[in-house]
Amino acid sequence: MLLEIKKLEKSFDGIKAVTGCDFAVKENEIAALIGPNGAGKTTVFNLITGLVKPDNGEILFKGELLNGLEPHEISSLGIARTFQLIRLFPELSVMENLLLAKQKQGERLIKNFTKPNFIKKEELSNIDRCLEFLKLVGLEEKRNEFAKNLSYGQQKLLEIARAMSTEADLILLDEPVAGVNPVMRDKIKRIIFDLKKQGKTILFIEHDMKFLMDISDKIIVMDHGEEIAIGTPQEIQNNKQVAEAYLGRKK
């Protein structure tokens, strides 16, 4: 298992957001995390990436315990993410947004003064690499544009490209196709399949049923802070409990 969530719990000021959530994601799997609004999906993402700390339970990545690590430490272990509300660096260019995803020597202050030539070479090779990711999402023409000047759909693509540029093994996407037009949705679908082909593992939150049934290997359904069903798209479609969570119980 690449990612294991065990009896995870988190409350905010007495309100229980996650109440004993258990699930696991296998290597090279596309897994969807679904559930009604307020089910605790984004909180689970925030717990995995260290933005909030769990009260109880364990998060294991490649067998290593993530509890208590800082977001930047977790990122360095190979987990990248996007946000439900896009979080780019608006005042930086598209290319700069991607370059930031790379961990490199040039980000150490002193190296820029002691090894300027090495840093320049490193920067050029990073630009080449990032250009490939930009081509993949079709934004190479926009590379010198400020991120804030992109359209909503392009910003979503850029955020995904940025997560890809970290070359993380596990990529968490928080509603990758929410508010995106059908053409863009197909593009994002292709990108996710591409990532799987490259050996990456994807865990994503999404409400678009058609989209997630199409691409997922596994679906994890959450309600009231815990997982209520885990299975293939077919299994989930036929699960009574899931229908109740979404539509309410029959009287």
Partner: peptide, 28 residues
Amino acid sequence: KIVKSPFGRVLKAVKDDELAASSLGKNP
């Protein structure tokens, strides 16, 4: 030199969105 360097880029990223920077492995 600092501002034009990859180090300076991280400074600008921290200014723009600290949380996004930390989720890319930078310690703000």
